[in-house]
Write a protein that binds this DNA or RNA. Structure first.
Lengths: 126, 126
DNA sequence: AGGCTAGGTTTCCGATAGGAACCGGCAGGT
DNA sequence: ACCTGCCGGTTCCTATCGGAAACCTAGCCT
């Protein structure tokens, strides 16, 4: 070991760790991926992302907005319309996110196979 | 919109989504990063990763092992020694993980600045 | 015998996640 | 005029999770 760069990132309170924890979240990656091609409405995201609830979507969007990764546009229209889009800072995440999603697409089956192949409960003394 | 490839990944139960949720976890990214340069012992990870508890580390490692991303070597020695290392499948995650950590290192400060600059409570009617 | 080591589990409790139900304003149907 | 539906969001409530600290196992050292 000992080959890691500066001691940061492992330091629990450094900006890099906080940034990772911001996106290392069940919904964040999927939401950012959904926004990666342009502005999307709240309702569109709800329909697009299977399994997410309005509450968790709003919560996730708020957090990303507070951290400057996305911007919210609320149009004062009759049926309310709200669009979300990546900020320039948020756009810098597109590449990392796409690498992750591509990895997931390529290896998702292998990961699931591993679950069936060797559940081995470990039991540290079997 | 409508430019997303196949409808998978948004489907909530497809392998790709499950794979993303496996690694989109507070500790998983940091742990995988810690293993990215070779085998590491449990205790080394505890010292390396600031803020993690033994419980969460073990839990995270077990989950990664069950999904075939890492392998566990328990040496039957006097003071027990346990090493963890990436499997070939897990090694395919190094690149995506490194992109994430590099992004975090480069933009962590900007993300934190955004928090101070515009906490704007939103209040959907300001 | 008692203490040390290293990895892991258990216990307890506060914090969080998440679904369902509700809110608010306005357009349109009747 | 009233009821209903649309959209985004919030509130309520519970099940689950996260984390600190204590405990466990097993063998060597003193």
């Amino acid at each position: 070991m000992s080959g890691f760069g500066p001691g940061d990132f492992f330091l629990a309170d450094c900006p890099a760790r906080l940034a990772v924890e911001l996106i290392a979240d069940k919904w964040t990656v999927v939401v950012l991926y959904g926004l990666s091609q342009g502005p999307v409405r709240h309702g569109e995201l709800i329909e697009l992302i299977g399994g997410i609830s309005r509450k968790m979507l709003t919560q996730t969007l708020r957090r990303l907005e507070a951290h400057g990764l996305i911007r919210r546009h609320a149009y004062a229209e009759v049926p309310p319309r709200v669009e979300y889009e990546l900020t320039p800072l948020g756009a810098t995440l597109i590449d990392p996110i796409h690498m992750l999603t591509e990895w997931a697409r390529a290896n998702g089956d292998a990961v699931l196979d591993a679950l069936d192949t060797g559940p081995e409960p470990v039991a540290h003394g079997e």
